[in-house]
Design a binder for these strands. Sequence first.
RNA 1: GCGAUCGUAGCUCAACCGGUCAGAGCACUGGUUUGUGGUACCAGGGGUUGCGGGUUCGAGUCCCGUCGAUCGCCCCA
Length: 420
Amino acid sequence: MKPPRLQAVRGMQDLFGAEADRFERVVEAFRAVGRRFGFRRVEVPVVEFTAVFARTLGETTDVVAKEMYSFEDRGGDSLTLRPEFTAGICRAFIANGWQQHAPCKLMTHGPLFRYERPQKGRYRQFHQIDVEVLGAAEPQADVELLAFADLLLRELGVTEGVTLELNTLGDAETREAWRAALVGHFAAHRDALSEDSQRRLLTNPLRILDSKDAGDRSLVAEAPTIDAFLTAEAGRFFAGVQRGLDAAGVRFARNPRLVRGFDYYRHTAFEFVTDRLGAQGTVIGGGRYDGLVAAMGGPDTPAVGWAGGIERLMALAAAPPPAPLLAVIPEAEEADAQAARIAAALRAAGVAVDMAYRGNQKRRRELAAKAGATALLFVRPGDEPALNLVCDEGEDVPARVAALRAAVPGARLAVRGEPV
RNA sequence: GCGAUCGUAGCUCAACCGGUCAGAGCACUGGUUUGUGGUACCAGGGGUUGCGGGUUCGAGUCCCGUCGAUCGCCCCA
């Protein structure tokens, strides 16, 4: 197969300029908010043995069978590009004995890969931010995670049209009873179900609850909700989460039809959803998966986490504010060395500096503007440095002047032509 | 995996029913002016109209295939 020209692989994209800036903004906000909540950065491999994902997701599901990037390496091992963070983090947790640090509050971000049909907000290589709390059985852990997500969205300016939908899947006993009741309900109306949902009845009955088919929806409306099946313990846990959210000022809406497709999910399930991204409306999604670590062969470890799509958050986030950038512009070739010295001194002092060294004066100002400069520093040739500082409206001029005085002592300094 | 729409310079687009239709703006490059914060002027480079095949005297314009994008379904860890 010949690759067509220099196109990127289907569903994978190049990011540059304003788009790349937005991407970075999401990641930086995530890390900053995470630190405020006491989460620690964790790094796990992009590639794992296929079994790490196949075992947790179920060998025969569509997800494993046709939506993973799996391949055989030169040693004959079946490897897979990670389609999610959770399984890899749990694998690392078990392999490295991180239970000694429990509760582990971990955060990470990076690329994930799923072989799906691309559409708006859905790519084959996509990027997520991810947090997990391993080894905490208390509802406070769920609350803290949701407060984290809520604050992050506010910091990013993503609140309009985004709502937190919350549900519980109960404990294992609850879930089994509810599932049986749902199957009974839908089986009794099998003929009225859409073709897709008749299939779901056999493969994944909970998923009938979020069917988009109009006919299914009326049946779904009559379907039993989980509340009638909650055990005392499961009910207490869910009440604890809701109380905590109220206390933390996190607004949510109960969605009794919010489900997870996989059995290891327990108790809390939640999604921050928007109506502004077409069919891919989930911005952040997660829940409690108390059964997963044990199912993978590790110690019995309660855990909860969420992941958010960076591409989707980017699409909703406000444009990042311009970062301060000082452009140093030598006025003539003879000033180049002087300008270079000044730029070096300023950078060493922690000031973001760009150099505009191409073309005539006009051109240099244009290039500085295009680079996003918020302040210009003209360097006049001569034995002693003569500098003229021109700042944006929002710039802290005294701070700029102080930085220049410190970095270039003895310079003749002017602000907009006026000596200071 | 299924259905629909789309694909013209780096970007956004134009080209009536197939016949000088390969263009504009922005961007880019060089220069002039200005002489100090993006807005002036002049000139220039750049496209075998995604790719391949077909119909036709003639195709960007019609047909088929393919690649990609977009919207929805499926799936959603």
